[in-house]
Structure formats: C-alpha cells, structure tokens
Design a protein around this nucleic acid. Structure first.
Lengths: 249, 249
DNA sequence: GGTTTCCACTTGTATATACAACCTAAGACA
DNA sequence: TGTCTTAGGTTGTATATACAAGTGGAAACC
C-alpha cells in the first residue's frame, strides 16, 4: 500500500467511514465554509485527504447528492447545491416562538421530567436497543393561559446528557436541543386522533373534539436525537404549510 | 467465471444494472405481486438470479430502502415497507399516484361536477367577487375499494375553462389542473375535524373516528386556480413530511 | 487564427474479495 | 428439559481494480 500523502483529517470515530466523510462535508456546508455552487473536493482528493478508497468517497458524495446537498456532473466535478426555495414546510418548530409571533403570551407546565427505560416503540423510533435509558418529559404549553399543546418527548441521552437539568418553563426543549445538537433532518407525521381522557382534561377539550397529533423525529449527525408527540385540540389549532413548487416531476 | 445458474431475467436494457434491478423490484411492489412485509430476495439470490455482483444487488436494495420502499435488517433480510395510508405531503399531490406507488388500486366516483355561484367563503379563497361562477366537483377516491379521501374542489373557471368536460374517473382533477395551469405555489392547512354525517358515510367511518382535513390552495401565474378540501379518515390515513434543515435561522 | 486531436481529470458503473455484525435455528451438552 | 455453542445465512462496510463516458484545456496541426 502506498503511504498516504495527507492524513491530517484521519477518520477515527466508530462510525462508518463514508458517514464520517459525509458529516465533515455537511458540516462545512452548514457552517457556511462551503457555499452554494462552491466546488467540493473530488473523489480522488478525498481519497488522498482521508485515506479512504475511491468507492468510499464515491458513496459519501453520491449519498449527499441524493439527499440534495450536492450536485454532481460527470467530467466536471461536485458542487454545493443551491437550496434556494427549498420548501419550508412547517417552518415553525418552536411553540413559544409561534405564540409570541401572534402577540400572545406563552407559558408552560412541566408535568414530567425523568429518566426511564425505553419501551420497544420508543427504542425503535430513536434507533436504540430495547430498554435503553432515555429521558422523558411531558410539558403542557399554554397560549394566554389556554392549553394549546401537550408535548410528550423522548430524548436520546447521548445527544443531550444535561437534559434533565434544564428548566423548561423558561426555554422549550426544542430550543435547548437545537443548541446542543444542531438538527439536520426532521420528519413529521400528522394524524387525527381521539385524545385519551388525561390529554382531554389537560387541554380542556370536550368529549367530541378530535385531536391533531404531530409526531416529530429529529436527527443530528445522522443519529436520532429526539422524538416527540405534540397533541393539539382540533378546534383550536391548525397547521399550515406553504411552498413553491420546484421543477421536480 | 462460473456459469450463471439462472439468468431467466438477464438484464439487457441500456440502463445501469442496479437501476434495472431496482425497477424490477419496484414493479413487483407496485403491481401488488410483492405486498407489505413480504420478503424480498436476498442479495445473494439476486446475484444468482440476475447474474450481477453482490455489490450491485446491494446498491439496488440499499437505494430502495433509502427511498422508503424496503426495510432491511442485518442478519434477517429485506422486506417490503408498509406504506399503508402514508402521504408525503411535499412530493405527492396526486392521490392516484400515491396509491399506485403503494402498489394498490385507485378508483374514484364523481359525485358532483357542476357550475355554481361562489359563496362568500369560496369567493374569498379564490380571490373572486361574491357570486362569481365557479366550477365545483366532489369526488370520492378509493384505495383497493376502501374509501380514503373525499375531494371537494372549487376551480376558478378562468384557469381551466374545460374543467366540466373532463372525465375524472380516469385522470384526477389534480392531474388535469397541473396540465392546464402549471402550479407555482401551494398552501396547505391541516386540521382535525369531526366529519359531518354525509362524509362519515362516504368514508365508512364510525361515529367516533376523527377526520384529517387538508385544505389546499394552488396558484398559477400569481392567480388562485383552485381550492380543495381533502377529507380523510383519521384511522386510515396519515401525513408525513420530511425535510432537511439548511443553515437558515 | 481557427480547427482538430489528444490528454488529463472527473464522475458513473461493475466486479471480486474480505471481514464484521447480526440473527436464527439446529445441535451439543448438562 | 433447559441452556449454551455453533454454523450458516443475512446485511453492512471497505477496498482494489477496471472500464466507460463526459468535460475542458492544451497541444498539434492546417
């Protein structure tokens, strides 16, 4: 084997190497070091730089392109994609911001803040093994003293070790998690449900009123950080999502 | 090279082989030959069957999994993902496409197709004057003969003059409108509701089941084209939205 | 100068090989 | 019977290698 020319950034973590390469490039994009239409190192350069094989470098770049971060052109090179006009579906992720944007007053009660072992369902959502320890919080958010959301959240301890020490009447878990684990990917699932009696009581809902449940999962560095069920009274809450159509399809 | 044991499905087209393998598997899913949770041939079996290398088979399966069609588990195998009742709000806007992508059969009944005068509410949503003429259609969409959506739509006549002459059991209004008025902007509003008794009957819903209502407005050339209420049974339908956060905000 | 040819670099694909990690089931053993 | 070990199949990753195809510029040629 030839002696590697340049291994300043030798890869060490336990993660697969192609993922480490992906993460490093993504970091440069998200930090602004690499900007739209900038050229990204070629596969061969990554081979030299990180001491990986070309196939590994190829996989990293190919997947980043498939995720929409990069644009590749045979014979030319790889470039940072211009994410201009990317659909900002559900831009609002912080209930406190949303409420204050409407000129109302946000308040919150922390009902639960604990460490528990993950059940099968939660473990799967966070890609942990069954019965792994997770942090769990239940918070009721109010808008002008009227309850508007129950936030039932599970957090992967590795991503936010200090989670249990926070005061969530002051900053929301969302705010805190965004600080400690810059989020990369968000998945939303929206359902209409019949709330159980406890939720109904907490939200001051009548027996007939349906609930709008948003289940959100967030990732950072390719690892799940948190999964949360946001339960809203159907009559007092709605979701809007605007976006421009790009050229797909 | 060893003689291939079984090349009945030898790959011939000019497309890359991994894409041909992907296409063949996808076809089996969408035709219903492979159903949710069915086992998909292992990489080794694909190697035998198609005479490709394991890396090529791996790439085909890996990409299909990354697209959400398959679920893979090390040590166990590869299985068809259960996409039942899932909608990807950003990409898919056509219920017929969405259903066929799940390998199911779409059918539709046109309950109403008429010209009426716009009430105040509809006129406002389409930015027309009160009592302006508008086209109105009500269509029930079914997935494998089970009703899954009531589409209650109002169309601005200027944008689609031939709307009333279309056969919407064949092509959906969405398809037709996309052809005649390339859409620029889409706005979604999502609510949980209690369906009225007619909707409940049409969707085969029980008295307790909530409904998920998506109200969509589309614009073309800066003018509203259409507004539609899509009503779904809460127990059989959910919405998912995935996106990457870029570096804004 | 203008044209063509050719070379270097890039991405895209395909293969053979190797090892690790994971899961299941059959068999060995107590 | 119950528990442990083992073997075989599965996916996940990593590498070295090879060739094809696209691009752009440099060099050769007219």
């Amino acid at each position: 084997m030839a002696i590697a020319a340049d291994k300043h950034h030798a890869l060490r973590s336990g993660l697969p190497r192609y993922q480490q390469v992906k993460a490093l490039i993504l970091e440069q994009i998200q930090s602004g070091e690499l900007r739209a239409n900038d050229r990204v190192p070629s596969e061969q350069e990554l081979v030299m730089h990180f001491g990986v094989s070309r196939m590994t470098a190829n996989r990293a770049l190919r997947e980043l392109a498939s995720d929409g971060y990069l644009v590749r052109q045979a014979g030319v090179g790889t470039f940072v994609a211009d994410l201009h006009g990317r659909s900002q579906i559900m831009k609002v992720q912080n209930i406190a911001d949303e409420i204050s944007r409407r000129g109302h007053i946000h308040s919150a009660d922390v009902l639960t803040l604990e460490k528990i072992v993950a059940g099968h369902d939660v473990a799967e959502r966070l890609q942990l093994v069954d019965e792994a320890p997770v942090f769990h919080s239940v918070i009721v958010h109010r808008e002008n003293d009227q309850p508007i959301q129950i936030e039932d959240r599970f957090v992967c301890p590795a991503a936010a070790p200090e989670y249990l020490q926070q005061d969530f009447t002051d900053t929301t878990p969302n705010q805190y998690l965004c600080e400690v684990a810059p989020l990369q990917t968000v998945e939303h699932t929206i359902r209409a449900i019949i709330p159980d009696s406890r939720s109904r009581a907490l939200l001051n809902m009548s027996r007939e009123e349906p609930g709008l449940l948003i289940r959100r999962r967030t990732w950072s560095d390719g690892r799940p950080v948190s999964t949360v069920d946001l339960c809203h009274p159907g009559h007092r809450y709605e979701l809007t999502a605007n976006f421009q159509s790009s050229n797909e399809d």
